[in-house]
């Protein structure tokens, strides 16, 4: 019935109170039961940053170039600017994918726009992302006195919106695929691991050699930077580490990928969702 993406999104927006309810439920159940509450969600990136900073920054001496023009050279900040968006992307795919499969009973008993289940779980993670980004901004400003970061926050918000669109599109595609083939989940978690190391997050893109490749007129670094998550990492780093506006090509590339992924992912999900009840 709701074959078109716009139609499906319109229908889903009629259920925005449900979306709000589900998101709230997700956030509550994630943080209510733990003593530290929100603190736990910050512990994970903090811990990872500490470990990487010791291992890579100190033992292996991976020292990325200082921020330009900010001159910031704290590896932890360099790392977090790329790690937070990637963690968000990865967590969204992993949790989003399970929403339909795990809601089996709900699928066969009631109808509501199926989009709401993965979307609300990703929205809940987006709230966490915003908070983490906010804390990062405050910490960087406090350490470096780079108040320009605050002026760049609207850019960061635009980047977050693009990242949410890109993530939702990817997650919706995988969620629907996972209903059909239940091992998509496992495959994805393996792929995410590879994707993490191939995306310049722990290291700067300048570490990738500009090696000429046979048959294609692009070098290895150019190929690696076509990766949208690499561009997201670079753009967030522009804001929080270099303290400047991301370049126009990067922004256009991100807009292109976000819109495309969101459109295609939603379209695939909506087309498959009619059959979800039968596949449970």
């Amino acid at each position: 019935m709701a074959e078109s993406v716009v139609g499906a999104l319109k229908e889903a927006s009629g259920y925005r109170d449900l979306m709000f309810n589900l998101t709230q439920r997700e956030l509550r159940s994630r943080y209510r039961r733990s003593f530290l509450g929100w603190g736990w969600s910050l512990l994970q990136p903090a811990m990872m940053t500490a470990v990487y900073a010791i291992m890579l920054g100190y033992y292996l001496k991976v020292t990325p170039e200082a921020g330009d023009p900010s001159g910031i050279d704290v590896y932890a900040f360099f790392l977090l600017a790329g790690l937070l968006p990637f963690n968000y992307f990865s967590a969204s795919l992993t949790t989003g994918m399970g929403t339909i499969v795990n809601a089996g009973g709900l699928m066969t008993r009631v109808w509501f726009p199926r989009l709401l289940l993965p979307m609300s779980s990703i929205l809940a993670l987006s709230v966490s992302l915003m908070i983490e980004m906010g804390i990062l901004a405050v910490v960087v400003v406090a350490f470096t006195q780079e108040f320009m970061i605050l002026a760049l926050l609207p850019v960061a918000i635009v980047l977050v919106v693009l990242l949410v669109l890109f993530t939702m599109g990817s997650a919706l595609f995988l969620t629907a695929a996972n209903v059909r083939f239940r091992d998509v989940e496992y495959l994805t978690s393996v792929m995410l691991l590879a994707y993490f190391y191939l995306t310049p997050i722990l290291y700067s893109p300048t570490f990738i050699p500009q090696k000429e490749l046979p048959l294609i007129p692009l070098d290895l670094r150019q190929i690696a930077l076509a990766n949208p998550m690499a561009r997201f990492a670079m753009a967030f780093r522009n804001v929080f580490y270099d303290v400047r506006l991301p370049g126009l090509p990067t922004m256009l590339w991100l807009v292109f990928w976000s819109v495309l992924a969101f459109y295609l992912g939603t379209r695939y999900f909506v087309r498959r969702s009619d059959r979800f009840a039968e596949m449970m």
């Binding site: 009629g14 259920y15 109170d17 449900l18 309810n21 589900l22 439920r25 009631v110 509501f112």
Partner: peptide, 9 residues
């Protein structure tokens, strides 16, 4: 509240 909004309220 959850069920009501699922039903579209």
């Amino acid at each position: 509240f959850l069920n009501g909004t699922i039903l579209g309220m």
